[in-house]
Every structure is written in C-alpha cells, then in structure tokens.
Design a protein around this nucleic acid. Structure first.
Lengths: 169, 169
DNA sequence: CATATATGTCAATAACACTGACCAATTAAC
DNA sequence: GTTAATTGGTCAGTGTTATTGACATATATG
C-alpha cells in the first residue's frame, strides 16, 4: 500500500480534511435534519397533513402569489405530486387560488387566514428549535453555519434562500 | 398591536434574532439537505435502491457488528420497515447476518465486500460535496457549522455522531 | 388557425413508512 | 423446568409521498 492511502486520508480528499471529518458532517446533517423536521410533524399530524403540505404552506407563505409552475420548480416534484397535496389544501381552505389578471392561464397561490395561522404555528416550532441552537452556539458559529450550508446548496438555488447574500462575492 | 409585535420580532424570539434570520435558516436547511441527499440518489438508483437502503448501508458500515435492535434505535423506524429493506440487502449480498456467539438471539450485521464497495461509492459522493463546501468556507466557518448542527440534534443522539466531542463542555 | 404554455386530472406504480397480530428462538427469572 | 421477557422475523392492511404516461382544458402567441 502506498502511503497516500494511509489512515483517514484518500485521493478524494486532497486537503487536510480527514474521512472522519467528512463522515461526521454526513451524520450531523442526517441527525440534525431528522430532529429539525421532527418538530413540526406533531402539529401536521393533528391536521392530517404531512411534510408535503408543510413545504407548500411554507413556500406559498414566503412567496405570496407564487404560480403553480414556480412552486414546482422550487420543490422539484412533479405537478401530479403537487396537485394531490395542493388540492387538499385548497379544498380545506388553507390556500386560495386566484387567476392571474394578466395571464389567465396562471393560478396565483395565497395563504388564507387559516393557512397563515398554520404556517405561523409550524414556522414557530422550527424557529424555536433553531433559535435555541443559535443561542447556544454564538454569533460566530451561526455565521459559519450559514456559510457552509450555502455552500452545500446548488448554485442555481442559492439565490432562492431568504435573507441577505452578505457573503456572495 | 403592542410594539413588542413590531417588525420581524415576536415573543418567540426574545433575543436579537429576527424572524427573517430564522426563516433563512429553515430554508438553508431545506435546500442544503435536498441537494446533499440528491448526490447519492443517482448511484442508488442504478442499484434499484433508495435512501432507506443507503441509511442501513451507512450505519452498518460505520458500526460493524451492530444488532438489528440497535439499528432500529438509530434509524427510529419500525422493525417491519427495516426488515423490508434489510432483507433485500442481505439477499443481494450487500450485508451479512451473523448470529452473536454470546446471545444467539442477536444477529450482528456486517457489510460484505460488495456492501463496502457500495458504501464507499455513496460516502465518496457525499464527502466530495461536503469537502467542496468546507474548502470554500474555511476552517472557522466549518467549526461554526459543526457547533450549530450539533445544537440542532436532540441531546440523546448527540453522542451518536462520529467525530470528537471537541466542544462538549 | 396552429402551436406552445400553464394547469389539472386519471390511472398505474413504487419507495417508504406505519399499525396490528402473530410466530420462533433464545435467554432470564422464578 | 416451566414461565416470562427479549430479539428478531413475518403476514396483512394502510397511508403518504413520490413517480411516469396519457390526456384534457384554458389561454396566449405566432
């Protein structure tokens, strides 16, 4: 065996990152995301909804008047998948569909009061979870957290994330 | 409306964290996790596998000789759900089951050579993705990233994550 | 009018998860 | 040694989220 294959280092990681460091990151993401999403699930369950409903509620809330097609682009799912869940939310009065005045093919989506209430409840849970982690970590760590997460996101979608692109350049 | 409800601040965030900061974090996690997991999916698809297979392959690889029960605890799924996927992996020769010598009720799980090869391929993809984000972010940012992610993980599971607990205290 | 776009819908399928009910082997307790 | 608990597996049924393919409708654009 050549010594470039020695403990914890491989051709794939030409810098000072050990395999162990990268494995740690993989596991951190797995557990953190599991616990992060787990927060809102209890709320959703009481409404008979799942994560798909949450994603729609969230992005319609954050982008009032978004079209179906734009929502599909963000979620990267098929329109059939979206339709099933979106129809439910419309029927049960969480989301309003309004025909675009300029292009009457388009349906613009808005949260109803009921939808906004659910969105707040869900976002509140997740916000609390994050705020707690942020408080325990300090401002510097938070800055690093944001930088690395941005780096993990496909370039095309980075601009979609809310908040300032403070370190775009 | 009382002024404690003014722009971007609410009772839920008693510190200097604005709602916008927390929304940003929610979206960062959503997009980053989506793109992070998307990496390995192409590989898995070529084997006819999904994320459930990946999780099993990963944790058996990282904990050689783990029992079925321990795996269930980590994954937080039912044994019926695990069984479906695990049986497949055993049948197709990615995982070996060996009866524990001391307690013959237990089946200890190990990756076969074939399983190890797949695990390496999958972990490599994700490691590359992370390594790239790490390189672009710098050591300080990486430290912050790790700290905040650890804070997002339920205390009970923090010790399960690989890597040193360098900032436990 | 022909074509492209935006959306919706029907049908079939699959991955992944659940609950409930059992069974078998093994070990631990009385 | 019989009973009880543990570990693991399995069968049946269900539900959520996603897929592909085919087709329909309304509208916009050329």
């Amino acid at each position: 065996m050549s010594d470039q294959q020695s403990r914890g280092r491989s051709r794939a990681n030409p810098l000072f990152l050990r395999d162990e460091d990268l494995r740690e990151a993989i596991e951190l993401l797995f557990f953190a995301y599991r616990d992060f999403t787990g927060e809102a699930d209890a709320v959703l369950e009481s409404y008979g909804f799942g994560r798909a409903h949450h994603r729609i509620i969230y992005f319609v809330g954050a982008n009032a008047g978004i079209s179906v097609g734009e929502l599909l682009t963000i979620l990267k799912i098929t329109k059939q998948s979206l339709s099933r869940v979106l129809s439910q939310l419309v029927e049960e009065g969480f989301i309003d569909q309004e025909t675009d005045a300029e292009d009457r093919r388009r349906r613009r989506l808005y949260l109803t009061d009921k939808g906004r209430a659910l969105e707040s409840e869900l976002t509140l849970r997740q916000s609390r979870h994050i705020a707690e982690a942020y408080r325990h970590s300090g401002a510097e760590a938070v800055a690093g957290f944001r930088t690395v997460l941005r780096g993990l996101i496909n370039e095309r979608d980075r601009s979609r994330v809310a908040g300032r692109d403070s370190e775009t350049g």
